[in-house]
Design a protein around this nucleic acid. Structure first.
Length: 959
DNA sequence: AAGCTGGAAGAAGTC
DNA sequence: CGGACTTCTTCCAGC
């Protein structure tokens, strides 16, 4: 996919830009104040400050800027450095890299306005803001912006930018699986060399990841001390958010395990993380856990951050940990002794699989870890355990893998029910996930003719519109008992529980998944995890993700992945929220009029079906309520008359969404729908349910996506949003991950070019077709090590959720070397591939901003009111309080929706670039585009924009 | 008796 | 800032 990203990078010398002070206002007057004000605003409002202003002088030729550094210090603005050493002003500065007085001003005091800027704002802000702000004094406008701090070369991130939950690490042990989010590859081998940037500070602990994991498995962790087996607890000495009781005591529970009233505010039976019973200062424990993570991510930025913390004083680190958390940690020991499980030691890992671990748990062994397998003493499997796929290059769990490759095809024959109430650790199991038909989900591998059994892996993944990745708030839970016919055992891979199930030839490589339940981890626990950026609230949809690794004679391994339909795991949602499982058609001529049959749950006689079209900036372009045939109403079926599109003369397909609404805040997820020009034949959605497994699976396996992100993008040239989000899979039924060709060459090497340097943000110029607006892309930063020679062995892990202009995610089989040594190219390939998620091939690229994953009732539905408030605030003159609220709202939006707006701002006159949407409100103009990112991790985004190469560019990321 | 379920109370978060 | 409402987490009881 050459075109995919013709990353024409420039040399970004941030050094010069960074500076100074003083500044005068430049064309972008708004910025100077903006930064300052924002800073204060955010500081006041939250202790987290996402604010970034990057100055990127663009010149041609030098690609590769990745955001690697996060400023640990509280600097209002963090300089971004480029991978280009030469231009690495910041680094050179070494010292306080991130202290710019005003991002807009150049060191010499010259206005930075000459540079276009990219401003990222929480989703939904711009649209409204533009309106309101345009009428406000620039200064005020600026004030109302909360900025996001980008990483700089010396620190990972400003502690102040982080919620207690996020600290220095891009990922905590637990979330390592989501390597892409951190933008670093996940190294199973944890090899220091994976990162040229290994800090000495970390190196010594090269195996520390093991440490952290050791905690996890340490007998001390005695599960007995905690009913919880969550990885989170065990893997992370995570501080607990003070705002919410992290311990059971905080909630409804009023008694500790011993039955005594729970008075200890800090006591948390559930938190027996890695902290030693000795109650050593949890900070220490935290530290121990850090390096490992860092190491695995090979995030030099993190390492640097750690270093900074280490050298600058633990105080910083500790300070970043909520007092309560630390306190809680300290009191773990008492907690541990409170509950004594019969049998004494309980494996910390899982609840149900204790039996699998007869003796004390063994600490993680690095080697094992490398292989992605937990070192488990013995396998009580009834089947001869297939050779575990032990390869350092085992794809990280957040990698998007194809469901089919060559002759092989991994398919979900029977989908799970759309609702499954997950159980908390404080509860008993709620059983295995069931199938709609009453049985259990079934997975089958086709095309495998060997006699050797394989291992099917299962973990709980996300079901949002972003890339499929391990779900931070849910874990697979092994179910055992008489009723369970399928053998399984748990392992920990990247700190995500993975259930291993035998795939036996005698069973036709088919497995009935009756041994998997879903465990819910407390939001407060997970959110406090280092590096965790997702929020648990309303994040209750998951997918069962299955993987199988097939060794090839040539030494390579084919990895396949199949994901289930989304599963709603919350009690309330499952009971009240309408859920659309299937739709008879997903497209129609613009004239509408046809009948759309929706199958799902919780439909009410008064349910409404609303079709919505949103602009890339989130504006509602069109909204209409479809006619629902109430006569034929069923709680599981709705007959809807497709409303005519607002424009009957469309020449190309138009993406819209619709949702079922049962009332305020009771909306289904957005469903995608496409209006076609009248002469375009309708594409019918094939059924895919439990009753037609074969058919469904085949479809999933062989049918072409109705529209692939790639395919869509072209049809919506003017919509950067498509491109931006296009690569994100949506939770689409029958979605199966499509493959990323990991072995195909031809990717731009831009990412590998200067990787060894401290890169920060990179601007990529996408030639795009003449008709296309430039794309501004946000991608996770490319791990510096990826492109480095040292990164050779680590080709997995990094998978930016970016968009990939072209190239089908299903194009080629995924095969990765089973030997460590995949070259840097390989490492990048995935990153350049379209984020082919399970739904990738079957769903449309996220519909621009609008797609803002609505339906979690909260997000989408609540946008308007908030927006209204914002407008009011702006109109009112944006007083401090208002600004604070507004900023807070923005942050919430970003966190919820994972979308930011990127806009290029030019000094005055729009430069001769291909931006379509000029923002006349501020300075010159820019490109506004929604960009899915991991909330609060904007530091990790990779910016790409089509900007005149010659123009210096300043990037401001605002949240 | 243990595990699975459904329901709901009460705390925390959000509007 | 406070009330109303939503969501989360825990607990209870029945099967």
């Amino acid at each position: 996919m050459q075109n995919s990203c013709l990353h024409v990078f420039s040399k970004f010398n941030f050094g010069p830009l960074v500076p100074s002070a003083g500044g005068k206002k430049t064309g972008l007057h708004s910025f100077a104040p903006l930064v300052t004000n924002m800073k204060s605003a955010e500081e006041d409002a939250f202790s987290y400050t996402p604010n970034v202003t990057l100055s990127l002088p663009i010149s041609m030729g030098n690609p590769c800027l990745s955001t690697q550094y996060h400023n640990l210090q509280s600097s209002p603005i963090v300089p971004v450095s480029s991978c280009h050493q030469a231009g690495y002003g910041l680094h050179n500065n070494g010292g306080a890299p991130g202290y710019y007085l005003t991002p807009n001003l150049r060191a010499n005091g010259a206005p930075a306005l000459e540079s276009p800027r990219i401003e990222i704002t929480a989703y939904g802000q711009f649209p409204e803001d533009e309106m309101e702000e345009s009428s406000l004094p620039i200064a005020k406008r600026v004030n109302s912006i909360v900025t996001l701090t980008l990483p700089n070369a010396d620190g990972y991130r400003d502690p102040s930018c982080l919620s207690p939950a996020s600290s220095l690490s891009s990922r905590s042990c637990n979330s390592e699986a989501s390597s892409y989010e951190s933008g670093f590859s996940y190294n199973y081998d944890n090899s220091p060399q994976n990162s040229p940037w290994q800090s000495p500070c970390v190196s010594p602990k090269g195996s520390s990841s093991l440490h952290s994991c050791t905690h996890t498995t340490s007998p001390r962790h005695s599960p007995s001390t905690s009913p919880r087996a969550s990885i989170a607890d065990e893997s992370w000495p995570v501080p607990h958010r003070g705002s919410r009781p992290s311990s059971p005591c905080g909630g409804k529970r009023k008694y500790s395990f011993n039955g005594a009233p729970c008075r200890h505010p800090s006591y948390s039976p559930g938190h027996s993380p890695a902290v030693s019973p000795q109650g050593s200062p949890k900070i220490i424990a935290v530290d121990d856990a850090w390096p490992p993570n860092t190491n695995q991510y090979t995030n030099s930025a993190i390492v640097a951050a750690i270093n900074a913390l280490t050298t600058d004083g633990v105080v910083d680190l500790s300070d970043s940990v909520p007092v309560k958390s630390r306190k809680t940690s300290l009191e773990h020991s008492p907690a541990m002794s409170l509950k004594v499980e019969p049998g004494g030691e309980e494996p910390g890992l899982g609840e149900a699989n204790q039996d699998d671990y007869p003796g004390p748990r063994l600490p993680f062994k690095k080697e094992n870890y490398c292989g992605g397998f937990l070192d488990v003493p013995q396998h009580p499997y009834p089947w001869s355990k297939p050779k575990p796929y032990i390869s350092p290059s085992l794809p990280a769990l957040d990698w998007q893998l194809p469901s089919c490759s060559g002759p092989y095809s991994l398919q979900m024959e029977v989908q799970p029910k759309s609702h499954h109430r997950a159980h908390y650790e404080t509860e008993g199991s709620r059983g295995a996930v069931k199938a709609l038909s009453g049985g259990h989900p079934v997975v089958q591998l086709y095309g495998y003719m060997e006699s050797e059994p394989l291992t099917l892996q299962l973990f709980i993944g996300t079901a949002d519109d972003r890339l499929l990745r391990p779900h931070a708030f849910y874990q697979v839970h092994r179910i055992t008992g008489k009723t369970v016919s399928t053998a399984s055992h748990e392992v920990l891979q990247s700190n995500t529980k993975v259930l291993e199930i035998p795939l036996l030839p005698e069973n036709n490589m088919r497995a009935i998944i009756d041994c998997a339940g879903i465990l819910k981890l407390r939001n407060s626990d997970i959110e406090l995890r280092k590096g965790e950026t997702d929020i648990g609230r309303k994040n209750t949809r998951v997918r069962m993700v299955f993987r199988v690794h097939i060794n090839q004679p040539n030494g390579r391994t084919v990895s396949l992945q199949a994901a289930s339909n989304p599963i709603e795991c919350s009690q309330r949602s499952a009971q009240e929220l309408p859920l659309v499982e299937k739709q008879s058609v997903d497209s129609s001529p613009a004239t509408g009029g046809k009948t759309l049959v929706l199958s799902g749950h919780n439909f009410l006689p008064d349910s409404k079906v609303v079709f919505v079209e949103k602009a890339q900036d989130g504006h509602h372009l069109w909204e209409t309520e479809a006619k629902v045939d109430k006569d034929s109403f069923k709680s599981t079926t709705l007959l809807v008359e497709i409303p005519p599109y607002r424009n009957q003369r469309i020449s190309s397909p138009v993406q819209v969404n619709f949702y079922v609404c049962n009332g305020k805040r009771k909306r289904s997820q957005y469903q995608r729908f496409t209006y076609l020009s009248p002469n375009v034949p309708i594409i019918k959605t094939e059924p895919n349910d439990d009753y037609e497994p074969q058919r469904a699976s085949r479809l999933a396996a062989h049918s072409k996506p109705y529209y692939s992100p790639l395919g869509v993008a072209p049809s919506v040239p003017a919509d950067p949003g498509h491109c931006l989000v296009g690569g994100y899979p949506s939770p689409s039924p029958s979605s199966s991950p499509k493959l990323h060709d990991l072995s195909t060459a031809g990717y731009p090497k831009c990412l590998s070019g200067g990787q060894s340097h401290h890169a920060a943000v990179s601007m990529a110029v996408h030639p795009g077709s003449p008709d296309h607006a430039p794309l501004v892309m946000l991608q996770p930063p490319v791990a510096p090590h990826l492109g480095s020679p040292a990164a050779g062995g680590c080709s997995h892990g990094y998978r930016p959720p970016a968009l990939y202009p072209n190239g089908s995610p299903c194009s080629s089989p995924v095969s990765h070397p089973s030997t460590p040594g995949a070259g840097p190219e390989a490492a990048f390939r995935p990153s350049l591939q379209p984020p082919a998620g399970p739904a990738h091939c079957l769903s449309t690229p996220a519909p621009g901003p609008g797609q803002e994953q609505p339906p979690h009732p909260a997000a989408g539905g609540q946008q308007p009111p908030r927006a209204a408030r914002h407008r009011q605030a702006g109109a009112a003159g944006a007083g401090p309080d208002i600004l604070r609220r507004r900023a807070r709202a923005w942050v919430r939006d970003v966190r919820r929706q994972g979308l930011l707006f990127v806009r290029l701002l030019f000094p005055a006159e729009p430069p001769p670039c291909r931006c379509r949407h000029w923002d006349r409100g501020v300075g010159g103009g820019g490109l506004l585009a929604p960009v899915p990112v991991t909330p609060m991790r904007c530091q990790d985004v990779f910016l790409s924009a089509a900007v005149p190469p010659a123009l210096p560019l300043t990037v401001a990321i605002t949240v």
